[in-house]
């Protein structure tokens, strides 16, 4: 942190890209303190409730984290401004979905990278619940292995260490086994497969 209390963007980016769970949580908490207030004002100004602002902000933090982990955030990005831009774009998407006629296009920054992100709040309640239940059915080990590899983008060696497996091969076998279970579950649920196509 520098003298003005601002955490340098390079550090925020590095923590989001490759930090451990604690570092990521601290970084997200910092971003919350810096950006949530303005998001709330923005959403309130354009026909949204406090709950809408909370939802949009949380989705934006998820999107930011995901982009960082996937290497889609470049060095030199002003992370706080970027997060706020995501919030504004997401709120615009929600307004369109609700067929609201508010024009906030002048407030938006073009973000094509957001177009292909299937965002949580864009899913219907039942779809969100179905995916949450799917997680519960998985068991803790499968959840951790798959989410760490595919979502948090950790290397297999790191996952083996985290899970206490004797070597990387054990982690790969576990991953393959868990994926087989996921495949079987999705085969029983064509409705969930449809969601993945949007």
């Amino acid at each position: 942190m520098n003298k003005t209390g601002k955490v340098p963007d390079e550090l925020i980016l590095k923590r989001l890209q490759s930090g451990g769970s604690l570092e990521v949580d601290e970084t997200l908490a910092h971003l919350h303190r810096q950006v949530f207030g303005m998001t709330l004002k923005f959403v309130n100004k354009f026909k949204g409730s406090d709950a809408d602002a909370e939802d949009v902000f949380q989705d934006a933090m998820v999107a930011l984290y995901k982009m960082a982990r996937q290497g889609k955030l470049v060095a030199g990005t002003n992370i706080e401004a970027y997060l706020f831009a995501i919030c504004k774009n997401l709120w615009f998407k929600q307004l369109r979905k609700r067929h609201e006629t508010v024009d906030i296009s002048s407030e938006l920054v073009k973000m094509p990278e957001l177009d292909n992100l299937p965002l949580h709040s864009m899913l219907e309640h039942e779809q969100q619940n179905a995916f949450a239940r799917l997680l519960q059915r998985f068991g803790e080990d499968c959840q951790r292995v798959l989410v760490s590899y595919y979502y948090d983008r950790l290397r297999m060696s790191k996952i083996a260490e985290m899970m206490g497996y004797s070597n990387e091969q054990v982690a790969k076998n576990k991953k393959a086994d868990c994926m087989k279970r996921l495949k079987a579950y999705l085969a029983e649920a064509p409705g969930l497969l449809e969601v993945l196509k949007f």
């Binding site: 949580d25 997200l28 908490a29 919350h32 949530f36 909370e54 902000f57 949380q58 989705d59 933090m61 998820v62 984290y65 995901k66 299937p118 965002l119 949580h120 899913l123 969100q128 995916f131 949450a132 799917l134 997680l135 959840q143 798959l146 989410v147 595919y150 979502y151 948090d152 996921l182 999705l186 969930l192 969601v195 993945l196």
Partner: peptide
């Protein structure tokens, strides 16, 4: 699918931070 499952989990984590 894992992306969406990860989103669900991550959103819960972000809610706790919030």
């Amino acid at each position: 699918a894992m992306g969406l499952i990860g989103d669900v989990q991550m959103k819960e984590r972000v809610k706790r931070i919030h």
